[in-house]
């Protein structure tokens, strides 16, 4: 089996309320160097050997991410 890791985040310009809250909370804790926090999703997926990344991309476009508001990055992380 092959393993892919998928990172889904909001597109630039889409307001991310949990990220903005974490950003304010970090500032309250004194981390003044923080200028932005964006919170997204991490998805680990195991597929049959030889599954092309294109196939995983299709899964993202159809179900795992919403292209209207989200972007994603796929990493092949080896054999499961």
């Amino acid at each position: 089996m092959a393993r892919f890791e998928i990172y889904v985040t909001y597109k630039k310009g889409i307001f991310d309320p949990p990220g903005a809250t974490a950003e304010r909370a970090l500032a309250n804790l004194g981390y003044e160097e923080v200028s932005s926090v964006r919170i997204g999703k991490f998805i680990q997926i195991e597929v049959a050997d030889g599954t092309p990344e294109e196939r995983v991309r299709e899964m993202c476009d159809r179900l795992l991410a919403n292209p209207v508001i989200e972007q994603y990055r796929i990493e092949r992380t080896g054999e499961a």
């Binding site: 309320p17 919403n66 209207v68 508001i69």
Partner: peptide, 17 residues
């Protein structure tokens, strides 16, 4: 309906969480 693309746009988490 938005996810099915029968209507445009998307519904995000409420601004005030």
């Amino acid at each position: 309906l938005a996810e099915a693309h029968l209507l445009p746009g998307a519904l995000l988490r409420n601004e005030g969480l």
